[in-house]
């Protein structure tokens, strides 16, 4: 595909229709892998225009975009760092075109489309096919539904607690998944009989708020304010004697967290 890209550029030079740089190019930020947004959309579109990038133009700077950018940098004698810094961006703007209206409107409509240079735009929109909407990416191993389920559990169990207490409850669920003495999945841990009161009394099916979801994502990203706890209880309402015998780690809000 690299060669194809160069060929297109060469053809354009021969035809004397070399592109005049657009005035509205990039926001001036250095773009790196993992970034998300308008600058990435433009980067992908421009790389596709000259044949380096074949993936979907979705604003998500993943590995596909990264290799495309590096190949571009290699062919044009730039530093091969996979970063769209100033030099790389201006080179890219010089040799490619970006029809912002076309690209943005297709993304908004959810169309499946491409943006190769030298091909009429109307042929590049796949009629009747919709692109799979971009779902947020989470750290390895957790799906959107796992997060939903955990957010439900956290909201049902700890909605009156401070934020840090909610992260701690989410962390306890994750610590249990990791532990050898509990089930190994989010659903297994959450629905284990008698494990959580919110599951027993149905409060888990309340609609969680944004904060509970944030708490779950922080916990998945590794934050553990419970410091490795496997249990927690409210000392005012706890009915089991056994739970008092567990080694206690710390108290957050109304909950005592223990091993």
């Amino acid at each position: 595909m690299k060669k194809y890209g160069l060929l297109i550029v060469l053809m354009m030079i021969l035809q004397g229709q070399f592109i005049v740089p657009e005035s509205t190019a990039f926001s001036g930020q250095t773009i790196q892998r993992g970034a998300f947004g308008d600058d990435v959309i433009e980067l992908q579109a421009r790389l596709q225009y000259i044949g380096y990038y074949e993936g979907a133009i979705d604003g998500d700077f993943g590995w596909g975009t990264y290799w495309a950018l590096r190949n571009f940098q290699q062919d044009y004698g730039l530093d091969i760092d996979g970063l769209a810094g100033e030099t790389t961006r201006s080179k890219l703007v010089n040799v490619s075109n970006y029809d912002e209206n076309y690209v943005r409107s297709n993304i908004e409509k959810g169309n499946k489309f491409t943006y190769y240079g030298g091909v009429p735009l109307e042929q590049q929109v796949k009629k009747g096919e919709t692109a799979v909407p971009k779902t947020p990416k989470y750290p390895a191993g957790y799906s959107d539904t796992d997060i939903q389920l955990m957010a439900n559990a956290v909201y049902g169990e700890a909605r009156g607690e401070p934020y840090i207490g909610q992260v701690a409850v989410a962390a306890v669920i994750l610590n249990r998944i990791e532990s050898s003495t509990f089930p190994n999945t989010a659903s297994g841990v959450i629905f284990e009989p008698l494990a959580f009161t919110a599951v027993a009394d149905g409060q888990i099916w309340l609609t969680p708020n944004e904060q509970a979801r944030r708490a779950v994502i922080d916990a998945i990203n590794g934050w553990d304010p419970s410091e490795n706890a496997l249990y927690y209880f409210n000392p005012v309402t706890a009915t089991s004697n056994w739970i008092w015998s567990r080694p206690q780690i710390k108290k957050i809000g109304q909950h005592i967290f223990c091993l």
Binding site: E227, Q248, I249, C258
Partner: peptide, 14 residues
């Protein structure tokens, strides 16, 4: 500030 309870694997301040 509060100190961790006795059951923690390592003492810490919150």
């Amino acid at each position: 500030i509060s100190k961790s309870l006795d059951g923690s694997d390592y003492p810490f301040y919150s």
